[in-house]
Amino acid sequence: MNLIRRNLPGALVVGIPVLWIALFMLLPYGIIVTYSFWLKKYPTFVPAFQFGNYVTIFTDPQYLQVFLRTLKISILVSIASFLLAYPFAYYLVFRCRSAALRTWLYMAVIAPLWVSYLLRAYIWKTILGTEGVLNSFLISVGIIDQPSDIFLYNQFAMVVTLTYIFIPFMVMPIYTALEKIPVNLSEASADLGMGPWRSFWHVTLPLSLPGVAAGFTLTFCLSFGDFIAPFLVGGPDGNLIANVIATQFGAALNWPLGSALAIVMLVVVLTIVSLSDRMERKGMVGGH
């Protein structure tokens, strides 16, 4: 009894995370892995152990097509987020003189996260639509005289929407990484005769790379698994891999194939996370 009491805190400290992992990771993933070997058979599917679902994924061109499209969209979203987020974070950390303004600007990036994802995605429909805000504006300033339909229901609209939604996940890690860089490093670099651009290129940017890697990983993985944006603002060529998985679990009633797709997707995401993790660690070793 005494023994248990003495070891209880220790058991809890180890036990809760282990239980958590077992319950919320291993169990559901185990179920999905199991399903992925099952066989589709009217009316639903039957237990089996075969690799047919994986063979389908790699032989039927429709899955590769959607997979490549998802890859493309996620990379574009990550790049767009990076190009916008880096200068913004840089300004906040190094150029913004007023602490109050810095807090406000930082909050302006974070605050949208408190608004429902669906609402934020929906708003882009009203902005980009044929009779939307953007078209009305372009017509009123005389840039175009007919409303254009090139803004909504295509991959461009999806990249814009996803960038808007996931950009906080790029700003936050970059901001944190930049904030950690001692100011005297770039001062030292300037003292040694480096111009501001070369100082940035050789000192600041390399030191902030772990943050950039973290940001890329987050935005990429989040976009990679998205299926709402294609539904709301994507066009006929907007199907992403998560939509295909949703279809397999719904309309097609083919959970085995859907599970196999989910596993393939999981492998891709885990590969990217571990690559980025390695990069971040390398960045840290180089930095300190």
């Binding site: 589709k40 009217y42 429709q62 279809t247 083919n254």
Partner: peptide
């Protein structure tokens, strides 16, 4: 559609995948 159901849905999914 019975066991033809899958062929129909698969064709439609292939259209959307294009």
């Amino acid at each position: 559609l019975g066991d033809r159901f899958e062929t129909y849905t698969n064709a439609w999914n292939a259209v959307k995948a294009q």
